[in-house]
Amino acid sequence: MQPRNQYLAWRFLPLLAGLLLALLVGIHFGAVSLSLEQIWQGLWNPAEDSYIHTILWQIRLPRVILAACVGGGLAVAGAAFQGVFRNPLADPFVIGASSGAALGATLALLLIAGSITVITATWQIPWLILAAFVGALLVVCGVFMIASLSSFGRSAPLLTLILAGMALSSFTGALVSLIMFLNHEMLTTIFSWLLGSFSGRHWNEIVMAGPVILCSGGLLWLLSRPLDLLSFGDEAAQTLGLSIGKFRMLILIAATFCTAACVAVSGVIGFLGLMAPHMTRILLGPRHGLLIPGSCLLGATLMVIADTLARTVIAPAEIPVGIVTALMGCPFFLFLLLSRGQQSG
């Protein structure tokens, strides 16, 4: 068994190489293209004072690093949600965590700043993460309770879970729309924030959200074995020694925290948390010990690519990155639904 584990560790290398390449491409492309030589020199001389240095350290690097953090965080949260709900179609977006976080963050911005603006003050971000977390947790618990009640305590069926997620997502979406309606002078700002974007983000966001994503993602990785056991169903996990209530709660809190941190700094970016774990499962298998770090690398890569496309395709204008991930993810989601339909039919 030992040699095979070592062999599996080697399978992370292409994922790591892919992420590095995506980061490099992300730094290279933009209004001013940076050559490999300029990037190399800029990276090793951080004190240098030039426009290339400013573009690299103040614009490109924080942006690609934040995109990688958010992509990795959403993918890890997606893998955890799929594992804990035993549902291949669950992700932070489908299950309502993202929309709950968006509602929480929108309300927090209204209360903190009195109006919705792009985050500029460092002190706002922890409150934003906390508000996003509370919103996300309330919606996820709501979805889970509705699904459990309708299945009389047994494993929540796929359809009920999706429908409950859709219902509560629509509800929170309506509340966000109401806030937009009541603050119509800020309509464009709210709308573009909700579509998800890394535009105008700096090191502040990375410093505040990065550790939350790292800690909650790390905790989820440590909970890999409970996630593996939960995949056999509640009763099997219990007979194999797992206190499912305690572990499920811990996994949900960690995944929700991870989602909330991502949404607080980037807005609502859908489908990535669904796509990355499925693609990783094909590459590395379904064991969460490999799936979670693998999803993190792949999610980060996909998000950096999506963000690079978002800011270059119609340059100098920018498409919200949430639109790019939805365009990439929607066909994938439908493919998944159809292939599952064929399996069960």
Partner: peptide, 17 residues
């Protein structure tokens, strides 16, 4: 089972306790 683990991986998880 929800995910396609191998037979060996499934049996190994019996050692969790």
């Amino acid at each position: 089972p929800q995910w396609p683990m191998t037979v060996e991986e499934t049996v190994q998880l019996g050692r969790s306790a």
